[in-house]
Amino acid sequence: MFDKVMSGIRGLVARRTGGGEGTPQAKVVRQRHPNLFEAAAEYVSACAENDQQGIEEASGWVSPEALSFGVNELACRAVIALARERDESPRSVARSLLGLPVA
Rank of each mutant, 00 (worst) to 15 (best):
R15H: 14
S68V: 00
R77F: 09
A81R: 13
V71A: 06
L36F: 06
M1V: 15
F2R: 15
A83Q: 10
G11L: 02
V44P: 10
A94I: 09
E65R: 05
I55G: 01
G54V: 01
V44I: 11
R77V: 13
R91Q: 12
P34M: 03
P24C: 04
L12Q: 13
R91D: 12
A58R: 01
V62S: 02
G54Q: 07
G99D: 06
R16C: 14
G19S: 03
P101L: 04
I55Y: 04
V5M: 11
R77P: 08
G18Q: 04
Q52D: 04
N50R: 10
L97W: 00
A103F: 14
W61P: 01
A26L: 00
E73I: 08
R86G: 07
F37R: 08
R86Y: 15
V28C: 03
A83N: 06
G11T: 02
N35W: 02
P24A: 13
G60D: 00
G20K: 07
V44F: 07
R32S: 10
A26E: 05
E88W: 05
A14C: 08
P34I: 00
L12G: 09
F2K: 15
L74T: 12
F69E: 05
D87M: 10
N50D: 12
L97A: 06
L12V: 13
E88T: 04
Y43G: 08
V13C: 04
I55V: 07
W61E: 02
N50L: 14
I55N: 10
L82G: 05
E65N: 02
S92W: 02
K4N: 15
F2P: 15
T23D: 11
R91N: 07
P24L: 00
R86K: 15
I80E: 12
E42R: 11
T23H: 09
R10N: 07
R30A: 09
G70P: 03
A39S: 09
G20F: 12
E73R: 00
V5D: 04
A94Y: 03
Q25K: 10
A48V: 13
A75N: 11
